[in-house]
């Protein structure tokens, strides 16, 4: 237990010492918000059902943070720790393998939370964005989306033979998702043809669920999204557990 706590704290410190990871996890989404807020403002618009562009962007950008950590940071971190023999060294201690995985997940989860908090604070302080949902409900949706993407991230790390491959595969999957899921470009302005295909992208389910819960919708309206994300979590988790290697 002491080891688990110490390991988690150490992992967080190490994460925050990586400028690139820290920038993209914690500062990128708030900066995007400031940039697009400066361009579009937050005036109520019929396009967003009477809400402003920033009101809608905050819950959407949560998807951006989730995909960045889950499909880029996590697979690179996991595969390179494996490749350099960092994981091997832990295996030679009495630390339980499960304790390592748990601390890894907690670390990435807390980093994602940090990014979301800063995003919300920026939105609230600069654009006075609206939050019309229930905190616990939003937290639940956030956890589901995040863990589903972590499962996919571990799957990529497990299947990729090297850290380089993990990085490439992660980015190839992550970037189209960022732009086609409504996480960056609002879903409302995507062309019909793209929507027809983009509605099946995993991140689209996260963005739809987050936006819905953020504005107070009931979970029951999002059966498809929840089913898809639980599917990602289970399939990703099982394959990841199967393909996980210590060296």
């Amino acid at each position: 237990m002491r080891g688990l706590l110490k390991l988690t704290l150490t992992q967080m410190k190490l994460y925050l010492r990586e400028p690139v990871a820290t920038f993209f996890t914690i500062f990128f989404a708030p900066l995007m918000l400031l940039l697009f807020g400066a361009i579009y403002g937050n005036e109520p618009s019929p396009l967003f059902g009477g809400r402003g562009s920033m009101d809608v962007s905050v819950p959407s950008y949560i998807g951006l943070i989730i995909v960045t950590v889950g499909l880029i940071g996590l697979p690179i971190g996991t595969a390179s720790a494996r490749e350099h023999g960092v994981l091997r060294r832990f295996r030679a201690t009495p630390l339980h393998p499960l304790a390592y995985i748990v601390s890894d997940i907690i670390n990435y989860l807390l980093m994602t939370v940090l990014g979301v908090l800063l995003l919300f604070l920026t939105g609230k302080l600069v654009f006075n964005v609206r939050f019309e949902g229930h905190l616990l409900s939003v937290l639940g949706g956030f956890l589901l989306g995040t863990l589903a993407f972590f499962a996919l991230g571990y799957l990529v790390a497990g299947l990729a033979p090297t850290a380089r491959t993990a990085q490439t595969v992660g980015m190839v999957l992550a970037y189209p998702m960022m732009f086609l899921s409504g996480a960056t470009i609002p879903w409302e302005i995507l062309p019909k043809g793209i929507k027809a295909f983009a509605q099946y992208i995993p991140l689209t389910y996260v963005v739809r669920l987050m936006r819905g819960l953020w504005f107070g919708d009931a979970w029951s309206q999002y059966g498809t999204e929840v089913a898809a994300l639980v599917g990602c979590l289970l399939v990703g988790g099982i394959v990841a557990a199967w393909t996980f290697r210590w060296e």
Binding site: G85, V86, A92
Partner: peptide, 13 residues
């Protein structure tokens, strides 16, 4: 106590 051949620690640790 174990010292391994091919191993490393996190570069910033």
């Amino acid at each position: 106590g174990v010292q391994l051949q091919q191993t490393a620690l996190h570069p910033r640790l």
